[in-house]
Simulated scan of single mutants.
Amino acid sequence: MLKINRENLKTSHQLIWFIIDFLMLGLLIINLTLIVIDSIYGFIAVQNLLLEHAPQVHQFYQPVHENFLFVDLVFVTIFLSEFFLRWGYAIKARVYDRWYFYPFIHWYDLVGCIPVGSLRFLRVLRVISIIYRLHQYKIIDITQFRLYRLVSFYYEAFMEELSDRIVIKVLSGVQSELSLGSPLFERIQDDILYPRREMLTEWISGRIAKAASQGYMPKRADLRIYLEGRVDNALKQNLELSRLRLVPVVGPTIQETLEDAVGDIVANVVHQIMEDLASTSNHAFVEDLVQVMLPAPGTEEPDETRNDALIALINEIIEAIKAQVKVKHWRAELKQ
Rank of each mutant, 00 (worst) to 15 (best):
F70E: 13
H53T: 09
G88A: 03
W107K: 08
E66Y: 15
S81R: 01
I91S: 05
H65T: 11
E66I: 11
I78Y: 10
H106V: 02
V71H: 06
V64L: 15
F83S: 07
Q59V: 00
G88F: 12
F84E: 01
F70G: 11
Y100H: 12
L85I: 06
W87C: 07
W99G: 06
Y61F: 15
Q59K: 04
R94Q: 08
R98C: 02
W99D: 07
P63M: 03
L80F: 14
A90D: 12
V74I: 14
H65A: 14
P55D: 10
W107C: 08
V95D: 12
Y100M: 03
F84V: 05
E52Q: 07
T77V: 14
K92P: 08
A54M: 15
H58M: 13
F60R: 00
D97F: 10
R86N: 09
D97V: 04
P103G: 05
F60D: 03
F70P: 03
W87L: 12
F60I: 00
F84N: 00
Q62A: 07
N67W: 00
G88N: 10
Y61Q: 02
F68Q: 09
V57L: 14
F75S: 05
Y102A: 08
K92V: 09
P63E: 04
P55T: 00
V95N: 06
A90P: 08
V57R: 01
F79Q: 03
L73Q: 08
F104I: 10
V76G: 04
Y61R: 02
F83H: 07
F75M: 05
L80R: 02
L80G: 08
I91H: 03
P63S: 06
E66F: 15
F79S: 02
V57P: 02
E52K: 10
R98P: 01
I105G: 11
R86I: 01
F79G: 04
Y61W: 14
Y102Q: 10
A90G: 06
A54L: 13
L69S: 05
L69T: 03
V64T: 07
V57Y: 09
F84G: 00
W107E: 05
R98Q: 09
Y96S: 00
R86S: 10
A90R: 01
P63K: 01
A54V: 07
F79D: 13
D97L: 10
T77E: 06
I105V: 12
Y89D: 11
H58R: 09
A90C: 05
F83K: 00
I105R: 14
P63D: 04
V71W: 10
H106P: 06
D72V: 03
F83I: 02
